[in-house]
Design a protein around this nucleic acid. Structure first.
Length: 828
RNA sequence: GGGGCCGUAGUCCAACGGCAGGAGACGCAUGACUUAGGAUCAUGACAGUGCGGGUUCGAAUCCCGCCGGCCCCA
């Protein structure tokens, strides 16, 4: 800073860094955001929750955005006088810590807890309104003890179980993944292509809750973004159809297939089994076995995405066997083909080539018959190669002939039910949640495996099963859990029979940890259970949740599932945990996600050093609607800083010119109207989460105050003070440091964060006159200043009397639309 | 292939079916204050709302089709 500037430095100089140092210390003493032990019930409660961070180094731009936006909501709740719970914790189990530990020959906890400290300090500097007494870490034994406790309750209820089967395996992270963690055939974490492996793993029976997860979304309509609800609906993928039993020649048990189009049963001309389904290997004829085995080996290399691609040429092998169509007794060849997945329905389908494109592609590739059974009026699929999936009258279908789709489905289900060869059925895309992970830094699964007793739960009083002290090389991925190598830890007595037994060596998916953390925040040190049931009754459910859309079907689905199970256990009285959800966008740079390889990363610490916390936060909030991505190249933290300096000077100058307590009624009326109008608008904008527009209104107010001080009633006018005080309070949601200092300059004790939201006076929102637009044929031809409560008749007369309007009229108007007091449209 | 969201000044973003004298901001230009300005203050220019239809007294806004972008499911 130049000497000149130093000399200019006066009471009104805005120095963000100095304010940060000053107020961070003061806030530590004041602790303005401590939640009451229980909400009083009088003024209402608000549980405001940000998705808790993973401690991967210091906070970054993405965190800065979520928490800036979440904090606007939280601080608004505080200002409105609610009892607010705004907690913070860390999702502190997970792979990056483990990988860092391997590289540094250290323990994952060292890296994890060091990063948590760094982030905690950054949060404090960033001025987020957390109640720090709520702080929790999912990797604390005091926390994961209860994750284990919950697992055991799920186990008791049959909601946690072990089964063998094909699972998604990430060859890079050397662990299995849940379906939700496979995105486009790749590992959601690291992007490696996922392969299939046959393994015995632990699952949560989320499919038992599929219907409730679907139905309870009705509660979330309007509170959650539609697209997240749609994504969850798609993910659950409920479809209605029928299970149809097909006899396979030479097999005692019939094979059930699921179809959404049982009405087309007469059009089934062949039968397809997933090559990786056990059924295929079982029924393949001796002559075809060799061909089948080599085909199966090929298919094993493919991802589901490849298999389902409509682009890909159809492949398959005839299994040398025939299935019998239950309605017409036809023999249909049984094929194995990769376009049928082993986990869809029952791993086998009836193929109706005329009315399903993939079946048709397959039929054409292998010269199988195509039979039209729905008359859609479109050309024969056998000729065109285009399947007809639409509605129409059934043909070649015995008793179904002439019926439409809906009727035919009803009828065929009736027929099948009578014969005992089928029934109406519902199918889901959702699969059970695979929760085992072959990694170290997670919550151990509290199960002991005993040769005699089988899976034996660790008794509650022995919880937590703590992690052994492994570090460095011992954690290197080898395809089995690192825990397996900790022999002292693994070998235990069976809790049931006392014989030799082994601990389960897998750890839980970290999404288990985060599926219930919001419940523990009400008392993170609670020792009589995972959470204080009574406190959750009072604080829950979460009124506003803020976080990224990347969890649309991961964390959010799992948490909803947990909540429902806990509801069934009588531990929570609500069935949906998050009443309202706000998905903020990403912070990108020059059109692309920030990444090391692109070299377009922006460092949050540097931005804060350069512009100050308030300016960075303001930039995040002002950039656009909260759901939109922010391209850092399109926004200007420098401009934010400039505005804050302007706003600060207004507050400081006002504070220097007057003291609190003046009679506002004596203030400049025009300015007062502006102030109250802005307050009214900002209030509504906050309620509807249009924070960027709210900031624009604060800018207008600042400009109005500037003008009033410079060339209006002057800084000492009570209206200026009223406006400056309102500005300080509203600004505190976005720029807490500048607002706090401004509030102090205005002569008020800290903290501005709890000063109370300004209330717009109705009387001051009424305009003396409004501008009425007079249109002729929809084009503006004149403007009239009229009273806001002018009658339609008076307004019409006034408009028709206008000289300027009459110039555009040649005779009596055909029609006059009057929307008093703002518009008249004359149709000539 | 199905479903959804979105296209407004050079840029980001506003606008209950009713004035696009764009709310706000970036950038640009001009002026004032200045030794100077990257500070501050003031002023100004820049789009007719992706394209084509329709509904309506009136459409950025509602409906249909197309183009372009993003997301989900396949």
């Amino acid at each position: 800073m130049s000497e000149q500037a130093d000399m200019q430095t006066d009471e009104q100089h805005y120095d963000p860094q100095a304010l940060q140092v000053k107020w961070q210390r003061r806030w530590e003493e004041l602790n303005p955001f401590a939640a009451p032990a229980t909400p009083s019930g009088a003024g209402g409660k608000r549980y405001m929750l940000d998705m808790f961070p993973y401690p991967s180094g210091d906070l970054h731009m993405g965190h800065a955005e979520v928490f800036a936006i979440g904090d606007v909501v939280a601080r608004y709740f505080f200002q409105k006088g609610y009892d607010v719970l705004h907690p913070i914790g860390w999702d502190s189990f997970g792979l990056p810590a483990e990988n860092a530990a391997i590289k540094r020959n250290a323990h994952p906890a060292e890296w994890t807890y060091a990063n948590i400290e760094t982030q905690a300090n950054s949060f404090k500097r960033y001025g987020i309104s957390f109640d720090w007494s709520t702080r929790l870490h999912t990797s604390d034994a005091g926390y994961y003890k209860w994750t284990q406790w919950l697992f055991l309750r799920f186990f008791e209820r049959g909601l946690a179980y072990r089964k063998g089967g094909l699972v998604n395996w990430c060859p890079n992270d050397q662990t299995v993944l849940a379906n939700e963690q496979v995105v486009g055939g790749r590992c959601e974490r690291c992007g490696a292509e996922v392969i299939r492996r046959e393994l015995t793993q632990w699952y949560f029976k989320i499919t038992d809750y599929a219907d409730r997860l679907l139905d309870d979304m009705a509660q979330l309509e309007g509170g959650w973004p539609d697209r997240v609800l749609t994504m969850q609906r798609n993910w659950i993928g409920r479809s209605e159809g029928a299970d149809v039993d097909f006899v396979i020649e030479g097999r005692d048990e019939p094979v059930t297939v699921y179809t959404t189009r049982p009405d087309t049963l007469y059009g089934a001309t062949f039968f397809v089994v997933a090559p990786d389904a056990p059924l295929a290997g079982e029924i393949v004829s001796e002559e075809q076995r060799e061909a089948f085995e080599s085909y199966r080996a090929e298919v094993a290399k493919l991802s589901d995405i490849d298999r389902l691609s409509t682009e890909k040429e159809k492949t398959g092998v005839f299994l040398g066997r025939y299935a019998i169509n239950p309605v017409n007794g036809e023999r249909m060849p049984v094929w194995a083909a990769d376009y049928v997945l082993s986990d869809y329905g029952h791993g086998a389908i009836m193929a109706v080539p005329a009315h399903d494109q993939r079946d048709l592609d397959f039929a054409r590739a292998f010269d199988l018959p195509v039979r039209v059974v729905v008359h859609t009026g479109l050309a024969d699929p056998g000729e065109t190669g285009v399947a007809t999936a639409g509605d129409g009258a059934l043909v070649n279908s015995g008793p179904l002939d002439g019926l439409g789709k809906t009727e035919a489905i009803r009828k065929i289900i009736e027929v099948l039910s009578e014969r005992g060869t089928g029934k109406a059925a519902v199918n889901y895309r959702l699969r059970d949640w695979l929760l085992s992970r072959q990694r170290f830094w997670g919550c151990p699964i509290p199960i002991t495996h005993c040769a005699d007793c089988g899976e034996v739960p660790v008794p509650d009083e022995q919880l937590p099963v703590t992690l052994p002290d492994l570090r460095g090389e011992a954690l290197a991925p080898k395809g089995v859990s690192p825990l397996a190598s900790a022999e002292d830890w693994v070998n235990v007595e069976c809790p049931k029979c006392g014989g030799a037994a082994k601990r389960d060596t897998d750890t839980m998916d970290t999404f288990v940890d985060s599926s219930w953390y919001y419940l523990r925040y009400v008392d993170p040190d609670y020792e009589d259970g995972p959470f204080d049931v009574e406190k959750i009754r009072q604080w829950g459910p979460i009124d506003q949740y803020v976080g990224g859309v990347e969890h649309a079907v991961l964390h959010l689905l799992y948490s909803r599932f947990f909540t429902k199970v806990l509801h069934d256990m009588g531990m929570v009285d609500f069935t949906e945990p998050f009443t309202r959800l706000l998905n903020q966008g990403q912070v990108i740079n020059r059109g692309k996600a920030m990444s090391k390889s692109l070299g377009n990363g922006v460092d949050l610490g540097e931005q804060i050093d350069a512009f100050g916390v308030d300016a960075v936060r303001l930039t995040m909030v002002f950039a656009g609607p909260p759901e939109d991505d922010i391209d850092w190249a399109d926004v200007s933290p420098a401009a934010s800083q400039k505005f804050l300096a302007r706003a600060f000077r207004v507050m400081a100058e006002t504070g220097a010119a007057s003291a609190p307590g003046a009679d506002v009624a004596t203030g400049d009326l025009n300015l007062r109207k502006t102030v109250h109008k802005v307050v009214d608008e900002v209030t509504k904008l906050m309620e509807s989460h249009r924070f960027n527009v709210a900031v624009a209104r604060m800018m207008e107010l600042t400009s109005a105050l500037r003008k009033a001080i410079d060339s209006g009633p002057g800084a000492a006018d009570p209206a200026v003070r009223e406006g400056a005080e309102a500005l300080a309070v509203m600004l505190s949601l976005v720029a807490p440091y500048a607002a706090e200092e401004g509030w102090e300059r205005l002569g008020h004790p800290a903290s501005v964060a709890r000063a109370g939201w300004p209330v717009a006076e109705e009387a001051l929102l009424v305009e003396d006159s409004v501008t009425c637009v007079v249109q002729v044929a929809g084009k503006v031809r004149d403007r009239l200043e009229v009273s806001p409560d002018i009658s339609e008749a008076d307004l019409q007369a006034l408009a028709l009397a206008s000289e300027r309007v009459r110039g555009f009229l040649s005779g009596a108007p055909r029609k006059v639309i009057v929307r008093a007091p703002k518009l008249v449209n004359i149709v000539p």
